[in-house]
């Protein structure tokens, strides 16, 4: 479904991504783990079209989308839950969800999906008229996920959804990611919480300072000496 080929991304003179390749197949949960500054967010932004690569390709169902404007990528079926959630703080929960469905025209479908999002996150339903900026961190994460679901994506990108959440909430978020995947959405998950991410991933890649240094199934990487030392605390 999604294939990244020999991607290079620069910020001015700094080369943040140095020729990475990976793929996400239909129905999979694929995770990209790596330390601070490894280039995870840069990769996610490039896939969504917020950044243009210096070279390389991002193929969505075989079409190169590196020259497609970001707003069209969403209607091609790719949505992203950005790092630090970035909900629209001055709009209500419901307005945020409406914005998630911005590219869609099917009013009935949107209504149905909103009910589904509220079913998945009952707390959002209780707070539907509340400004998103007044939600707790966990609720904002749920809203950011619900908002991405409203685009009815075939593939969903999540950038560190567990950041700053309590262990209990982290479990809840990962359970929901699995649930979203089981309902038919392909998932690309970026995480520093390698343990949880590897536990739900079909396949995983390790990103280190702009290069992919290791890949395998979630289980394989969880057992690998290198990963255990660097990311799982021994």
């Amino acid at each position: 479904m999604l294939k990244v080929e020999n991607l290079y991304v620069r910020y001015g003179m700094i080369e943040a991504i140095k020729g990475i390749s990976f793929e996400v197949n239909d129905g999979e949960i694929v995770t990209l783990i790596g330390a601070n500054g490894a280039g995870k967010t840069t990769t996610m932004h490039t896939i969504s079209g917020l950044l243009k690569p210096a070279s390389g390709a991002v193929l969505l169902d075989g079409t190169d989308i590196t020259k497609v404007p970001s707003h069209k990528i969403v209607s091609m079926g790719l949505a992203q839950v950005p790092e630090r959630r970035r909900v629209f703080a001055e709009q209500t929960v419901e307005e945020n969800l409406d914005l998630g469905a911005f590219t869609r025209k099917d009013k009935d479908g949107i209504k149905k999906d909103m009910e589904e999002v509220y079913e998945l996150f009952p707390r959002l339903k209780e707070r539907r008229t509340q400004l998103a900026g007044t939600l707790s961190g966990g609720e904002q994460q749920m809203l950011a996920m619900g908002r991405a679901l409203m685009a009815k994506p075939r593939i969903m990108l999540l950038d560190e959804p567990s950041m700053g959440l309590s262990p209990l909430l982290v479990n809840e978020i990962f359970r929901i990611i699995k649930d979203i995947n089981q309902r038919g959405t392909t998932v690309l998950l970026v995480e520093q919480n390698a343990k949880m991410a590897l536990a739900i991933a079909s396949r995983a890649y390790v990103l280190e300072t702009g290069k992919i240094t290791l890949e395998g199934t979630g289980e394989e990487l969880a057992r690998s000496e290198q990963v255990r030392k660097a990311y799982l605390g021994g």
């Binding site: 932004h45 970035r86 911005f102 590219t103």
Partner: peptide, 16 residues
């Protein structure tokens, strides 16, 4: 309003 608050996030919603 979304663009005025966070242009990047607005782009991720598919807003031109």
């Amino acid at each position: 309003r979304a663009v005025s608050e966070d242009e990047g996030a607005a782009r991720l919603m598919g807003i031109n």
